[in-house]
Write a protein that binds this DNA or RNA. Structure first.
Lengths: 157, 157
DNA sequence: CTAGAGTAGATGAACTTTCAACTTGTAGAG
DNA sequence: CTCTACAAGTTGAAAGTTCATCTACTCTAG
């Protein structure tokens, strides 16, 4: 039998509920923005990571780590993106097992349009309701939270 | 053609990435906690809402609103919960179309165990890395964000 | 009382995600 | 060299989610 549960007090409870609600609602809004460009959130993130990588290309495993997807899930999603012509696969010169995923020009074009919508959404729903100070404090807190769970994923600076 | 994209500046960008990373990682940790009790996050939330409702029962539609699910999704999820014996359905006395979903004793027992694990997870991964002040500030900010998107869902007090 | 519009919920097909194999290739030990 | 262990990626089935549609009931206007 586990020890008695240390419940959250009222203030904590309320903060936690706000977290759940905000995350849910924001996700929904951003999803709506991306769907205007025929992209899901996971797909969008893949395009973003590729676009920021040297040569607009990444090994499948690196990409999977970046977007926090399982390799299997990434395979399926990249299949869809490849079908749409937004990325392509080529085998990795250095490692015979490896596969590189490359962002195509067409993919880059779609990404630019989608990124515009997406950033506007983030601004409207997350930045605008807060002061700059509040937003940065939120970011700093969540950085601590994330680093506590996955120190390796920390972004330098 | 849309107007030029107003990108996030470096600090904002970093805060946004921290948000994404923290939310993803936290979700994953809490999912692992719940799966020890054979519950998914959506299922868990349904049990929580039922347990807090008068008579441990709610109309399907009210429940759907509470957990921010579509009615269809709720139907499927409640099917699973009913199969496990944790909730049951009974037709609504007042409205012939309506269905009430009731938490069973067995469901309540499962919920208590799951809630223990879940709260410990929230503490460990979200509260503990932050000071109380930081956590409450985070909650307050996210409450503003949520209310901006869905004023109706606001919790009084 | 009854026709039409609207609400509650269920259903099944399409799609996405997860999980456990499976294939192919690398690398180190002997 | 070649065996074994492991890493990269894919595959297909099971589980979960979404979407359009369907049935049953309520409510209001005439």
């Amino acid at each position: 039998m586990p020890p008695a549960t240390r419940w959250l007090d009222d203030e904590e409870q309320q903060a936690w509920r706000s977290y759940l609600r905000a995350v849910r609602l924001l996700d929904e809004q951003l999803r709506r923005g991306l769907e205007q460009h025929q992209l899901s959130h996971p797909e969008y993130e893949i395009l973003v990571w590729l676009s920021e990588s040297p040569g607009r290309a990444l090994r499948m495993s690196e990409l999977a780590q970046g977007v926090l997807n399982s390799r299997s899930r990434l395979t399926h999603t990249v299949n869809r993106l490849e079908g749409a012509g937004w990325v392509l696969r080529r085998s990795c010169p250095a490692d015979g097992r490896g596969v590189e995923c490359v962002l195509t020009d067409s993919g880059y074009t779609v990404l630019q349009a989608a990124a515009h919508t997406h950033v506007e959404g983030v601004r409207r729903y997350l930045l605008d309701p807060l002061t700059r100070k509040e937003f940065l404090a939120l970011g700093a807190s969540l950085a601590k939270v994330a680093d506590a769970m996955d120190p390796s994923g920390r972004r330098t600076t």
